[in-house]
Design a protein around this nucleic acid. Sequence first.
DNA 1: CTCATAACCGACTTGATTAGTCGGTTTTAA
DNA 2: TTAAAACCGACTAATCAAGTCGGTTATGAG
Lengths: 124, 124
Amino acid sequence: MRISKKTQYGLRAMIHIAKNGKKSLKEIAKAENISVDFLEKILKDLQSNGLLVSKKGSSGGYSLARKPEKIYAGEIVETLEGIVPVECEGCQMARICSSKNIWDDVKDSLQETLYSKTLKDLIK
Amino acid sequence: MRISKKTQYGLRAMIHIAKNGKKSLKEIAKAENISVDFLEKILKDLQSNGLLVSKKGSSGGYSLARKPEKIYAGEIVETLEGIVPVECEGCQMARICSSKNIWDDVKDSLQETLYSKTLKDLIK
DNA sequence: CTCATAACCGACTTGATTAGTCGGTTTTAA
DNA sequence: TTAAAACCGACTAATCAAGTCGGTTATGAG
């Protein structure tokens, strides 16, 4: 049960942009001490999943696709690594499986926690 | 955010023993359709962490170290893969980090969910 | 117009972790 | 005494996480 660096970096980058407005990849990478090349892929993911908008060329950069109070931590985690802890689809035993319940509970509580916080909550 | 096969198998094995009493490795592996060799290591882990007791020789096998109502799902997960989602120890920024809070929340809700269910709850 | 800047894109590498295998040893009770 | 069972350590294959690299495309400032 651990959160990948990718997700950790992604959240930090989103928070950085929420706090400072439009920023370039380089600026974010430097401020947050993250590898530029790695962060690039992360920001691309966030962009193609509708959490960031990007602008090419000089004076370009990344900015939030929505207001901070409309972006949920859960969306970031879901984009960068997913929240489903156990894949029961396809398992024949799923109907009668005694352990399925608890994995469903874990998923629910994870969702609950991650969707109860927006970027606005986090930058305070 | 996913639960390893090791943990999934471990929980299923614990449930199997809770339902059926003392069982041998082979019996559990067959009933739960898990590789014998892999399950062996899992049961060893559960034994050395005080969740199972084992008996060698003929008519040996594994049984619960405590009553099912005294064994928490969280103990099983903690033994087989750990619950801490993000390691902030050693990070210089931890004091002022805006994202630390949410990872703490995730950890708390995970603990809450996993320690609110005992094996007894699960076998019903 | 052009050029520096910045995002886009795909392929590749490296190391760690997961999931599993295998061969042999020790203990126990029927 | 012997079959059944747990114990033990080393090994392997596949997958994934994390990071690197080289080049392409778009854009606005000068």
